[in-house]
Amino acid sequence: MAGVHSGASLDDLVQRCADERAKYGGGTSADPRYCLEIFRRALVEGASDAWSAMYEAYYRMVLGWVKRHPAAKTVELRDSLEAYAHEVFERLHFSNRKHPVDVSSLGAILTYLHTSVNWVMLDALRQKRREVPLETVFEIALPDDSDNVLDVMSGQELWDLVRQVATPRELRLAHALWVEEYRPREIPALLPEDFPDIQEVRRCSANLVDRLRRKYRRPAQ
C-alpha cells in the first residue's frame, strides 16, 4: 500500500498525514497510507527529511505515552519526560539499522514505538534506582589490584564468588542489597522471616562483606 504514494512530495504527505490523523482521532474515515509513506521513506530509504517529518508528526504522541507510563508516575526519573520521548526515536533509529522495522502497516510501526516506550521507561527506572549519592560516587573505586583478586569481572562471575562464601540466607540478602539495590532499612519488610530488624541486616551484611574481602584478598607478595 505504501507504494501508492511513493511519488508524492514530502510536504504533501506531511499535510495529508496530519489531516488523516485528525480524522482518525475524530472517529471518521481515515487513510493511514500518507503517514505510512513518511515512515517508509525515513526507515527504509533513510531520508533525513522524512525522519524529521516523522519525528515532528509523532513526537507528541510518543510524549503522551511516556507521560502516561506508570514508571513516570512511580518515581521521579533522572531526565525530563521529553528526553525519554526523544530517546524512543533514537532507539527506533538504531534498532532499525540492525533489524529493519516492519513498515508493512502503520499499526505495526506505532506498536513498535509504543513498545519502545516501555523499554525506555524501564531502563530509566533501573538507572534511577542505581543512582548513588554524589559523595558516594567519589568513594567508589575498583578494588585495589594489589589487595584482592576480584579485579574487574562480570556480574555473573562476581556473583559466583559471592555464592561460594554466602549461606542461602546471606545470599537472599546479597541479592536484595546489591542486585536489586534495596536499602538496608527496606530489607526487614522485604525479607521479614530472614531479617526481622535493621540491626540484623547490618550485622549480616557487614559479616558477608568482611568475609568476601578476606577471602579474595591477594596473598601478600
Binding site: 531502563d123 542505581r130 562476581l158 542489597l177 562483606v209 568476601l212
Partner: peptide, 21 residues
Amino acid sequence: EMGSFTAYLRQQLYRFDCPPP
C-alpha cells in the same frame, strides 16, 4: 575500604541477572 568494596559490589551486581526490559 569496606565502603568502597560494597560500592563495587553494587556497581558490578546491579540487576546483572535480570531480564532486559
